[in-house]
Design a protein around this nucleic acid. Structure first.
Lengths: 135, 135
DNA sequence: CTCCAATATGTTATGTTATTACGTACGTTG
DNA sequence: CAACGTACGTAATAACATAACATATTGGAG
């Protein structure tokens, strides 16, 4: 669960999936990754999902639950933060990663005050990035 | 998008779906609602999804994106808040709705500072409710 | 180096969630 | 009643995800 601090050596499939995500401008679904990797020998969804699981475990990518898609982490130290929020632009689909430790502890406190102990949080914001808002 | 302030009159299907959600202790998936309503004449997913869409529009239920499920709103005035966070217990699956306007504006400001204008937010916390934590 | 165990991979099938497309019924309003 | 909007019924299919099982590869322990 906790991302490893070591730089793990990626396997072939993991490398291919990671590369696809890193070079994408937008989050990709598992099946669109699969389509991209047909020429590299990928045939079945499981090949993608297994690689995705490992990459998440390594902290190299994130899953965006609200859109069933995945992004490469652009925020190399995010493993050191408790909370990551994702701002997903509804126009260009680009994702901004936001971390703020104070916000994280506020949210955890708020939950505590409501009788809940947080172990993991999903925060996904929809709206417009400044670039798209101007246009 | 914005929940209506009027109390809308629900249709037959909407009533059945809403009743199922209100009487459930846990969030329900669309397909488990479908199964529950077979005896009431439901035959196809679309009957459920259409009712769910309307109920969400009316502000009577919420969708939990991280678990592809739906809950009746237990927090009647949540339409007046900008942000609702859901705390989902990983043991009993019950959901606590949390609203906090200060937190909402902090989160919006944080996003603004990161070049993003929020229109809608998904905040779903996983962990344990106090009841389950004690046991 | 060899054997073992752990991990990674390949493949088929299936399960789960959600939407498209098309047609019918029904209530409201002019 | 005619025209319109909304709801409903049904079949098909798309999109997302996992189970189950077999084979291959890798990396120590002895």
């Amino acid at each position: 669960m906790t991302p490893s601090t070591e730089a793990p050596k990626l396997t072939k499939n993991q490398t291919l999936v990671y590369r696809a995500l890193k070079s994408a401008e937008e989050p990709l679904s598992a099946y669109s990754i699969l389509d991209q990797l047909r020429d590299d020998g990928f045939r079945a969804p499981l090949q993608v999902y297994r690689a995705l699981d490992k990459l998440i475990e390594f902290g190299l990518i994130h899953r965006l639950e609200s859109i069933n898609s995945f992004v490469a982490c652009r925020h190399p130290d995010c493993g050191t933060h408790e909370m990551v929020a994702f701002a997903i632009c509804e126009s260009c689909n680009r994702v901004i990663e936001i971390t703020d430790d104070a916000m994280a502890s506020n949210l955890a406190s708020l939950a505590r005050a409501n009788g809940f102990s947080v172990s993991r949080s999903t925060i996904e914001l929809r709206g417009l990035c400044d670039t798209c808002r101007v246009h």
